[in-house]
Amino acid sequence: MNANHFIIKHASQEDIPALTAVERECFPAAEAASEEEIAARVHAYGKHFWLLFEGKKLIAFVDGMTTDQADLTDDMYEDASLHDENGAWQMIFGVNTIPSYRRQGHAGLLIRQAIEDARTQRRKGLVLTCKEALIHYYASFGFENEGISESVHGNVTWYQMRLTFPEK
């Protein structure tokens, strides 16, 4: 991966069609956010989207709201108004990379940027849910497995992972 060809930026209204297309390419219909949900998220917390472009092509993104709630709950996916810009925790709802760009370090680049931004913003840390097969991947960034989540999003078993920053 030649980092000179890639740009990371936050989301704006103009990015909604591309975000929707990538979301649909990355997740089954039962798990993918709709265009309306993505639009509401961008409107509420566009600064908490990390988009990776190769030239003008969106190839990957990470997104999630901030909140004082310590655990990621299903209602957060559906209700962007739950975002609290001063929230203690950065939630990660999706780590999306279009299939032809996977296993090249793109998602990791965005995850590290989200972690760094949350640290700079003085959050307590980040929380995400993932399928069992990805526990090891997220652990490589410092996330700890907290076990099976209460989430039933998409009728799938999810594991909650948390990265907590050391207190200063």
Results as ranks from 00 to 15, higher is better:
Ala3Ile: 14
Asn4Trp: 15
His5Met: 15
Phe6Tyr: 14
Ile7Leu: 14
Lys9His: 13
Lys9Ala: 12
His10Gln: 13
His10Cys: 14
Ala11Cys: 14
Ala11Asn: 12
Ser12Thr: 14
Ser12Glu: 15
Gln13Ile: 08
Gln13Ala: 13
Gln13Phe: 15
Glu14Phe: 10
Glu14Lys: 13
Asp15Met: 11
Ile16Arg: 02
Ala18Val: 13
Leu19Ser: 06
Ala21Phe: 12
Glu23Ala: 13
Glu23Ile: 11
Glu23Phe: 09
Cys26Arg: 10
Cys26Gln: 13
Phe27Gln: 14
Ala30Tyr: 12
Ala30Met: 06
Ala33Ile: 00
Ser34Ile: 04
Glu36Ala: 07
Ala39Trp: 02
Ala40Met: 06
Val42Thr: 02
His43Val: 11
Ala44Arg: 02
Tyr45Thr: 04
Tyr45Gly: 00
Tyr45Arg: 01
Gly46His: 07
Trp50Asp: 02
Leu51Ser: 00
Leu51Arg: 01
Leu52Ser: 00
Leu52Thr: 03
Phe53Ile: 01
Phe53Ser: 03
Gly55Asp: 14
Leu58Pro: 02
Ile59Ala: 00
Ala60Asn: 04
Phe61His: 04
Val62Thr: 13
Gly64Met: 09
Gly64Leu: 06
Thr67Tyr: 12
Ala70Gln: 10
Asp71His: 10
Thr73Leu: 08
Thr73Met: 12
Asp74Gly: 15
Asp75Ser: 11
Glu78Gly: 09
Asp79Thr: 12
Ser81Cys: 13
Ser81Lys: 10
Leu82Trp: 11
His83Asn: 07
His83Cys: 15
Asp84His: 08
Glu85Pro: 11
Asn86Trp: 13
Ala88Arg: 09
Gln90Trp: 10
Met91Trp: 03
Met91Arg: 01
Met91Ser: 03
Ile92Val: 08
Ile92Lys: 02
Ile92Trp: 03
Asn96Asp: 04
Thr97Lys: 00
Thr97His: 00
Thr97Met: 01
Ile98Thr: 02
Ile98Pro: 00
Ser100Arg: 03
Arg102Ala: 05
Gly105Glu: 08
His106Glu: 03
His106Lys: 06
Ala107Arg: 01
Ala107Leu: 08
Leu109Ser: 10
Leu110Gly: 00
Ile111Val: 14
Glu116Ile: 03
Glu116Tyr: 09
Ala118Asn: 03
Arg119Thr: 00
Thr120Ser: 04
Gln121Ile: 05
Arg122Met: 05
Arg123Gln: 08
Lys124Pro: 01
Gly125Ser: 04
Gly125His: 06
Leu126Tyr: 00
Val127Asn: 03
Val127Phe: 09
Leu128Val: 10
Thr129Cys: 14
Thr129Met: 11
Cys130His: 14
Ala133Leu: 10
Ile135Cys: 04
His136Cys: 06
Tyr138Val: 05
Tyr138Trp: 08
Ala139Lys: 05
Ala139Phe: 06
Phe141Met: 02
Phe141Thr: 00
Phe141Ala: 04
Gly142Pro: 05
Phe143Tyr: 07
Phe143Pro: 00
Glu144Thr: 08
Glu144Asp: 07
Asn145Ala: 13
Glu146Arg: 11
Gly147Leu: 07
Ile148Pro: 03
Ser149Gly: 01
Ser151Arg: 04
Val152Tyr: 12
His153Ser: 15
Gly154Arg: 09
Asn155Thr: 08
Thr157Trp: 13
Thr157Val: 13
Trp158Lys: 04
Leu163Thr: 02
Phe165His: 02
Phe165Ser: 07
Glu167Cys: 15
